[in-house]
Structures are given as C-alpha cells and as structure tokens.
C-alpha cells in the first residue's frame, strides 16, 4: 500500500458548525441496538444504505448530497465481517422513515412485528417456542 501524504496541520481548517444533530455513521449508528416503539429489541444496525451516487461515476458539481435511505440487517453482517457483498435484493431494510431517534440505541416509531427484520423471531416463536407448554406464559 502506498504511504499516505499527511496534510500540513495549518491546511486543516476549523470545522463548519452544522445545524441539527450530527451523526458519524461508524460511531453513532453501526452496531447499535435497534428497539421498536415498545422498547422491544428488533436487531442491530448491521449496515446503512445511502441514496446515490452511482459508484465510481464522476459526481457533477452541485449534485444534491446523498442521504440515508435505510438501516440494513441480515446477510450484510456476515459480509461486513468476512468480506464481499450480498446482492441488494437480499438486504433486509428498515427504512429511515420509521426511525424515531438515535441515541445509545436506535429507536423506531413502529412495532417490531410490522417489520421484515423480525421474520425469524416470529417464525421461531410460532413454529417452536409457542408449541412448547408454558411458552406463552409469564415465568413464575
């Protein structure tokens, strides 16, 4: 790997102040727990999907900045750890529109059961756990 040329310190200018909440994706989003509107864990933020730009294509000046379209979960966790990339048809998306807040956890404004991300939990509940006696009762 070629060695990077460090910029002279005086060339680094003080950052412009951003209005509104500032999120660094790696720091504030990736790997955080996602809770639904009732506080039930749904999944973790395994990756984040952006709108545009076309990868590797020159970006014309004045192009509108990309924004977060969805939080991703599922197979993207495996490829993030071991490399590669699943086809985007395999992404399990939690659209940004249902995200209600970002703090130590990402909270959603909807119930877990309404999301694709909870299909395995629902499947295991309905096919295994609910069929064992006592599975639907509070512990005593």
């Amino acid at each position: 790997m070629r060695k990077a040329k460090p910029l002279p310190a005086q060339d680094i200018k003080p950052a412009p102040r951003q209005a509104g909440l500032v999120l660094d994706a790696q720091l504030h989003l990736l790997d955080r727990q996602i809770l639904d509107v009732d506080g039930v864990p749904v999944t973790t933020v395994d990756d984040v999907e952006l709108s545009g730009p076309a990868p590797g294509e020159p970006i014309p000046e004045g192009t509108e900045a990309p924004h977060i379209t969805a939080l991703l979960t599922g197979a993207v966790l495996g490829t993030r750890i071991f490399g590669g990339r699943p086809p985007s048809s395999r992404f399990i998306r939690i659209p940004w529109e249902v995200v209600a807040g970002v703090d130590t956890v990402v909270s959603l404004g909807v119930r877990a059961n309404s999301l694709d991300a909870s299909w395995l939990e629902r499947w295991m509940r309905d096919q295994i756990i609910a069929k064992i006696p006592g599975g639907r009762h509070d512990p005593e």
């Binding site: 509104g20 909440l21 500032v22 999120l23 660094d24 994706a25 790696q26 924004h67 940004w96």
Partner: peptide
Amino acid sequence: QRLGEVSDVRFALDAAPAQLLSRARMV
C-alpha cells in the same frame, strides 16, 4: 496522491422534519 482511508461518514439531520426524524444528509 493517496491521502488516507475513509474512517467514517458524517451525516447531519438538518432538513425539515419528515415523518419522525428529518432526513440524514451526508455532510
């Protein structure tokens, strides 16, 4: 000339509020 690696991507929630949160615009 190589300057380094992308260590993070910064976003700002400064657009008009949408349904729940405003759009997260890439800074």
